[in-house]
């Protein structure tokens, strides 16, 4: 059995309300809530980045179940906001873990780099190359002030340790789908990403998620009603409901894993953190389908069953996602700009 051995998430404490962002740009304060289903987004503190978020998420995973560094055979860190353009985040994680014999690499695939990391680690465990591997999706995503992304680009991450012993959630199947669809991108040297506006919807998010989800259910021989929970990539508070409905899922399957209304789009952290939210409440035998989306464009899907081992697993040893969502300090737009280093340079 290959699957999740432990998991942990991290969401920075700071939030900005979308109404505060609307105030800056002359939008109606209710616009982001009504139009995008977003109430607030998480903001990294001045001293946080994708690497610090990754470490905190991983430490939360280790608080629940400690896996010694020398047993970790692989570390993949997925992010589109790695602190360095050249110099891996994964090596920092290896040092923190003391996992000096691990295969370590950074991944980037817009918002699906986190699930790409999970799939890589799963493959290495399943192939028998390693006993345990770390997969992290983490981001402090960039939205240009005044752009639609200003309402959603947020920060957070989740770490999974995948192995074959004492698995709390078995990964039954995983599939992917990819096409060359430039719906969102950032050219080398550019500070903020660009996007194709409405082109990010139908030919990108919806087509890829629906294709992957259907492939997965076909491979697993399942139907939407076989799942207790479904987690989709969540760039806003509306798309997951819309794509879920089109695939035949019900609101009560979607809602527990949908956190973007309260913390925004954590990009590579998105689908992994949605899944983490579900694992916080899931019971043995619960079946979960998780489908990511990364612009450019691709999607990874996972069919997961929670095992009896979950009963022995100490979920309370680390904060749950909702603990961290509720632990919020709201800041104004000027503080947001300072924290995101948009009005200050390094001295």
């Amino acid at each position: 059995m290959v699957g999740i051995v432990t998991y942990g998430s991290y969401i920075p404490i700071y939030r900005i309300k979308t109404a505060e962002i609307a105030r800056m740009w002359g939008d109606k304060p209710e616009h982001p809530e009504k139009g995008l289903g977003l109430f607030a987004k998480s903001v990294p503190a001045y001293d946080e980045d994708a690497a610090t978020i990754a470490v905190e998420a991983l430490r939360n995973a280790l608080r629940r179940k400690n896996i010694p560094g020398d047993k970790i055979g692989a570390i993949f860190v997925g992010s589109e906001s790695h602190p360095y353009a050249v110099k891996p985040t994964a090596s920092l994680i290896a040092e923190v873990l003391g996992a000096y014999r691990a295969h370590a690499a950074d991944l980037e695939f817009a918002c699906k780099a986190g699930t790409a990391a999970m799939q890589n680690v799963y493959a290495m465990v399943k192939a028998g190359m390693i006993d345990y591997g770390v997969a992290i999706g983490t981001d402090t995503s960039q939205g240009q002030p005044g752009d639609a992304l200003d309402y959603s680009a947020s920060a957070g991450g989740t770490a999974y340790i995948i192995g074959k012993d004492e698995v709390i959630a078995e990964i039954n199947h995983t599939v992917s789908f990819v096409t060359d669809t430039p719906d969102f991108w950032r050219r080398e040297g550019q500070r903020y990403p660009s996007h194709g506006g409405r082109f990010t919807g139908e030919p990108a998010y919806f087509k890829h998620i629906m294709s992957t989800a259907k492939m997965l259910m076909e491979e697993a021989g399942t139907k939407p009603e076989d799942y207790d929970y479904v987690v989709f990539h969540q760039p806003n508070g509306k798309f997951p409901y819309r794509v879920g409905k089109r695939l035949g899922f019900k609101e009560e399957q979607i809602k527990p894993g949908l956190i973007s209304p309260y913390i925004g789009n954590t990009y590579s952290g998105g689908t992994p953190t949605g899944l983490s939210t579900v694992l916080d409440i899931a019971k043995p035998e619960d079946r979960i389908i998780a489908v990511s989306f990364g612009s450019g464009a691709g999607s990874d899907a996972f069919d997961i069953t929670v095992t009896d081992e979950m009963e022995n697993f100490n979920r309370d040893a680390a904060p749950k996602v909702w603990d961290m969502i509720n632990r919020a300090k709201y800041i104004d737009y000027a503080t947001y700009l300072k924290f995101r280093r948009m009005i200050v340079e390094v001295d």
Partner: peptide, 23 residues
């Protein structure tokens, strides 16, 4: 685990410990 300091815009980012209040 936080960023502690950085060597200008182009240099190394130094990471280390800070503290936060317990819940």
């Amino acid at each position: 685990f936080r960023r502690i300091a950085e060597d200008g815009k182009a240099g190394i980012i130094q990471y280390g410990y800070k503290f936060i209040p317990d819940e």
